[in-house]
Design a binder for these strands. Structure first.
Lengths: 366, 366
DNA sequence: ATAAATTTGTGCGTATGTATC
DNA sequence: GGATACATACGCACAAATTTA
């Protein structure tokens, strides 16, 4: 124990200087006592003080100006000028848009992007974040893996905050959260999609959503609210979810969606409309329905989510819910930069309002 | 001038130690002269030598062991464990696949990915690469901007090689190149696509290609070869190219493609088949043709390139040319890792053979 | 097994140079 | 010009770790 507590004088002085900054509330850019003063105060030689200062210089806590003095923080050469971005899926069509938004803003500010792909795997996500922290990133933008589950990596997020680094959560928020986040109001989006189907006379409305993803659960919540408001009872046979493991390869994803579609079609009475978690699912569903001889919207109505390129194509034309995509990425990057410039981690919450984008995949009944 | 050449003793000694390592070919793990010896040799105090050594320690070039000596490199904390990847377009559907391939391999080896988006802009590309080099990346994977033009960033690539860092060129190669590259034989691909159309009785074959991109030019070269081999004269009205600036936003891209399609349709006699630079173009062309009342393949035959998700959809079903996508990314990352492990930059060239993937977008004439 | 030699780690005192106010 | 503060540099001493005689 005593071996542990032993410290050479220069390390003790280093600690003392850190304390001094905290205690005396020295602000960034403010001068700390001169080398001579520090030497006198600690009753050591100036050389020993300099050794302590050298270490703090390396850490970037201090900077010196010859003939003037030693100062606390605030120098522009501070930081690694790298920001991490951890996505749950590089293949998601939305990923490119968000990435572009983030990269555009960061590039302009001279920052580089460290990219990680968690594949919605909590262990992999933890590995990536720890790796990024070792590389001394200035901030982190993250789509949390398994955001709807309890055992995710929130503890690591808190650690980053303790290190006074900004962290922005994309498309998720945590109950007790002091983090900044950029989200879409997915409950409202789910409600809007479902209400639109109801307004068009649909009552037998199915939903296919991703269970491991918080937005998936919230869109489902919106669906339930809209159904309840319209007095339509929920039918468990119409409620289908899938998991990320089924998304790993395009084939697995197709299989999973196809099975869901088959089970919906074989249910009696079969649904007249399907609300899909996102456009990728919607396109897949349409593909499978077409193969089984059903046409959209004549036989079944369809609604997607995200308003992606996929559904804008004339041949497909699926009604969808808007998502800010690139703008969301830009906002996230802007919050990071703002926090870094102000050297003060504020907690900003940006909530985008989704809007219905009508196309020709919903039939009016009655 | 003399002011420039002035260096404090400890910096001169630092340089000398670096020279000494090179000159005496000190291998990683080998001991360098003791502080006392160095002090004596340079006729300075031990303190001054230590200051020089401290800097080299910070740089990670040396490590010390108390009571034993100071050693050159070889410590596991060597290298930044970061690899750069500069893409010309984050929005390209192929980007996600290549990125996944690269990231999978790098992640497993404990490397992180620094991502850059050049947007096919040479100045931006140079900025990104220089920025990455400052962050001390271990290697670089790059899709070169404006690869078909003369004034690109090859000089920077050579600089990186001089620094003994591996660099892998994706989808391009340079005439006098000592770099590693991973490419598809696009001449062959273009030839295969065109020959297939010819074999199906087509003679009035149009091509739409990206001029600023080497693969675009090579696919065009393949087209010309196939036409020549079949004895079909080239018709300039059938040969259309577009540029990256038109690709910046989805709207611009659509406009550019639509104009090209219109000009092809108004040409007399209009083409019976169109060979598109890639699937994205092919899908856009099909969209526009459908809007003008033409159907595929009945009115016009269509062939794409890359065999992407886009053309696999049943509703679209466009014949295409295969591209290794994810595999190409994996290969690039593997070459980087191999070079880093062997501490020897070899020049590996991987050329994938494209294959025709038949769907239902080509009509048999006669 | 012990002592001596070597090498890095820590620490003190001093002197001179240079930049800023 | 003088005062102040950081930058560079020398010499010395002892401690701690390791190797070698």
């Amino acid at each position: 124990m005593d071996q542990e507590s032993y410290l050479p004088k220069y390390l003790k002085i280093k600690k003392d200087i850190k304390k001094l900054i905290k205690k005396h509330k020295i602000k960034p850019g403010e001068k700390i006592p001169s080398e001579y003063e520090l030497a006198k105060k600690h009753d050591v030689s100036r050389h020993t003080v300099r050794k302590a200062l050298d270490l703090l210089l390396q850490e970037g806590l201090l900077y010196k100006e010859q003939g003037i003095g030693t100062f606390y923080g605030g120098k522009p050469d501070n930081g690694s000028k790298m920001v991490g971005f951890v996505s749950i899926s590089v293949h998601d069509y939305i990923f490119s848009d968000i990435l572009t938004g983030i990269d555009d803003i960061l590039h302009e500010a001279g920052y580089q992007l460290l990219l990680g792909n968690s594949k919605d795997n909590i262990a992999r996500e933890a590995e990536i974040i720890n790796n990024m922290l070792e590389r001394d990133i200035d901030g982190l933008i993250i789509e949390p893996a398994k955001s709807s589950y309890e055992d995710n990596n929130t503890d690591i997020f808190y650690k980053i905050r303790e290190k006074n680094r900004p962290i922005i959560i994309l498309d998720s928020s945590f109950s007790n959260d002091s983090f900044s986040y950029v989200v879409v109001d997915d409950v409202k989006g789910g409600e809007a999609a479902t209400s639109y189907l109801i307004a068009n006379g649909h009552k037998r409305i199915a939903i296919i959503y991703k269970d491991s993803h918080l937005p998936g659960r919230q869109r489902f919540l919106g669906y339930k609210r809209a159904m309840k408001d319209a007095g339509i009872p929920l039918v468990s046979g119409y409620i289908k979810s899938y998991h990320f493991s089924e998304l790993e390869t395009p084939d697995k994803f197709s299989d999973a969606i196809n099975k869901i579609v088959d089970s919906l079609l074989s249910y009696e009475p079969s649904p007249t409309a399907i609300f899909c978690f996102n456009d990728q699912v919607a396109v897949e569903v349409k593909e499978h329905l077409n193969l089984t001889g059903k046409s959209i919207p004549d036989d079944i109505s369809l609604i997607g989510y995200d308003d992606s390129k996929l559904v804008k194509l004339n041949n497909i034309g699926i009604t969808s819910i808007s998502h800010p995509k690139k703008l969301a990425g830009e906002k996230a990057a802007e919050i990071i930069l703002k926090n870094l410039q102000e050297d003060d981690i504020s907690s900003e919450k940006i909530i985008f309002e989704p809007e219905l984008v009508k196309r020709n995949s919903v039939k009016k009944l009655n």
